[in-house]
Design a protein around this nucleic acid. Structure first.
Lengths: 142, 142
DNA sequence: CTATTTAGTCAGACACTCTGACTATACGTG
DNA sequence: CACGTATAGTCAGAGTGTCTGACTAAATAG
C-alpha cells in the first residue's frame, strides 16, 4: 500500500477546502476563516443553538461560541433569543452570511464536478458509495 | 446529493486521525500532538531537511521548524548537520520517535482493516482506486 | 567575483482550541 | 410545589499551531 487511505482522503479534502477558501477570498469574503466557515455551514434554516453547532462541528461549546461571536461581528450571522428556552439564543444566517454560503457552495460544486470529470461517473459513484458507507462506522455524530 | 464528497472524506479522515492520536496517548506518547505527528510521519529514513518537511506537510518552514523543535525536545527526533550543505541540518527519527511511528502505524492499519471489513474487498479497492486517481488533480505536492 | 537563490532562524502577531469555573434557566421526581 | 440535577451559555486563562516579515549564512549561477 503506497499511502494510507485516510491520508489520501486528507489530500483531496484539503484541496477542496482550500479552493473554497480561495474562492471566498476572491469574492470579498476575505475575513471568514476556515473554522468560522465550518460553523457557519452548519447553521440550520430556522436557526441553531450554540450547543448543537458545537456538537456537529465537533468542538467545545466555548469554541463554537467564540467563532459565532466573530461571525456575528463580521455580519455573517445574527442571534435572537430562543422563544422556547430563555437560556438559549438562536444563531441565524444573516444576508451577508447567505451570500457567503452561496459563494462557497458554488466552488464546492465546481470541485465536485472536476472530480466527477476526472474519475468518470462510474468511479465517482463508487467513491461516494464507499464514503457514505464508511460514515456508518466513522461519523461520531451519527 | 446529501453531503459533499469532500465532507464525507473529512469525516472518515478525522476519525482515523483521532483513533491514532488516542492510541498513541494510551501507549505513553501523550505529548506528541497531531501537528507534530504530521511532521514526524514525513521524516525520511536518511533524515530530512526542514524545508522538505514543510513542503510535504504543507506548512511554512517556520512552522515546520517550530514543530521539529518540540519533537526534538521531547526526544522523538534529533538533528545533525547535513554533511553536503553547511546551511542545512538533517532531522532524523530518534529511537523514541521510531517507537511512536510503529505505534501510530499499528492503529493506522487497524483502522484500514476495519474499513476494509466494513466495505468488503471490492468496494475498498474501488475507494482506494478513486482516491489515488483523485490525487492527480488534488495533490499540490505531486 | 558578484548577484541571486536557498536553508534556516528570530520576532511578533493572530487564530483556534481546550479546561475549569460560573450563572441562569429548564426539567424531573417525590 | 420544592428541590436537585441537567442543560445553554459565558468568562477567564492557557497552550498550540500558524502565518508574515526581516534577517543570517551558505550555495550556486553567470
Amino acid at each position: 500500500m503506497e499511502l494510507p487511505t485516510a491520508l489520501l482522503m486528507f489530500i483531496a479534502q484539503r484541496h477542496a477546502e482550500e479552493r473554497i477558501v480561495e474562492h471566498l477570498r476572491a469574492h470579498g469574503f476575505a475575513d471568514l476563516t476556515l473554522a468560522q466557515g465550518r460553523i457557519a455551514a452548519r447553521i440550520a434554516e430556522e436557526g441553531s443553538r450554540i450547543t448543537d453547532l458545537a456538537e456537529q462541528a465537533q468542538v467545545t461549546k466555548q469554541t463554537a461560541g467564540f467563532l459565532v461571536e466573530q461571525l456575528e461581528r463580521a455580519g455573517y450571522v445574527d442571534r435572537v433569543p430562543d422563544p422556547t428556552d430563555k437560556r438559549a439564543r438562536l444563531v441565524r444566517i444573516a444576508p451577508r452570511g447567505r451570500e457567503a454560503q452561496e459563494c462557497a457552495r458554488e466552488m464546492e460544486q465546481t470541485v465536485e464536478a472536476e472530480w466527477a470529470a476526472h474519475l468518470g461517473p462510474r468511479r465517482m459513484g463508487q467513491l461516494r458509495d464507499a464514503l457514505v458507507s464508511l460514515r456508518e462506522i466513522t461519523d461520531p455524530f451519527l
